[in-house]
């Protein structure tokens, strides 16, 4: 039987750890991916995801079932990502993934791995992923958050508007601008419209 997130959260509020565990299992994958797209560092993304779940647990008493759990969770994660990016720029810290030059392939996960014998398809996908990630990093913060939430987390515009604290109309405009800018950036990175079409 499927139990809704809100019901699980109410159980968690009463101290049911199994309900909390189920929530973590449900959202660990999308949450890490969302944070990873924002901070561009896997280990930091894992830390921040753990921190997000910890905050959810701590503030379970304050949770009201009127609010959607999903948007509440992503609001916490978005705030943590914003803090992380702000602190990073203050400390002038760069992660290895950010320092990757165009065309190079030096993921920190790949340092120990010999990529010479990897299939071409994998390499191509990796390259493609890298280009998309770089293009995402160039978007303004609100546009990036809105587009990530809609494209990868499958959130509704209404939920995104709750997370960003703006109207649904504003989200509509943000998504559209983000898509247009992404298209321009991808064309600039060498993936023209024809290439996009060909790849699809």
């Amino acid at each position: 039987m499927f139990v809704s997130d809100e019901d699980l959260m109410m159980k968690c509020r009463k101290g049911d750890m199994s309900a909390f565990e189920l929530l973590v299992r449900r959202y660990q994958n999308p949450l890490i991916n969302y944070i990873h797209r924002s901070v561009n560092d896997y280990h930091r993304a894992e830390d921040l995801s753990q921190e997000t779940f910890l905050r959810v647990f701590k503030s379970a008493n304050r949770y009201e079932p009127t609010a959607s759990f999903k948007s509440w969770l992503y609001t916490i994660a978005t705030n943590l990502c914003r803090n992380e990016v702000r602190n990073r720029s203050r400390r002038n810290t760069y992660y290895l993934e950010d320092l990757v030059e165009e065309g190079e392939d030096v993921y920190h996960t790949d340092i120990m791995r010999d990529t010479r014998y990897m299939p071409d398809v994998l390499l191509e996908k990796k390259e493609q992923r890298q280009i998309i990630r770089k293009a995402f990093a160039q978007l303004p913060e609100n546009q990036r958050v809105a587009l990530t939430l809609v494209t990868y987390q499958d959130l509704r515009y209404e939920e995104v508007s709750e997370i960003l604290g703006c109207s649904v109309g504003a989200v509509k405009a943000l998504i559209h601008r983000a898509r247009q800018k992404m298209k321009k950036l991808l064309i600039k990175a060498g993936i023209g419209e024809e290439n996009i079409n060909a790849k699809i």
């Binding site: 660990q28 890490i32 998309i132 494209t151 996009i196």
Partner: peptide, 15 residues
């Protein structure tokens, strides 16, 4: 097409 292309960016595996 832009949207479909973006969705192909892949996901990281959770440890």
């Amino acid at each position: 097409k832009t949207d479909t292309f973006l969705r192909q960016s892949g996901e990281v595996e959770v440890s």
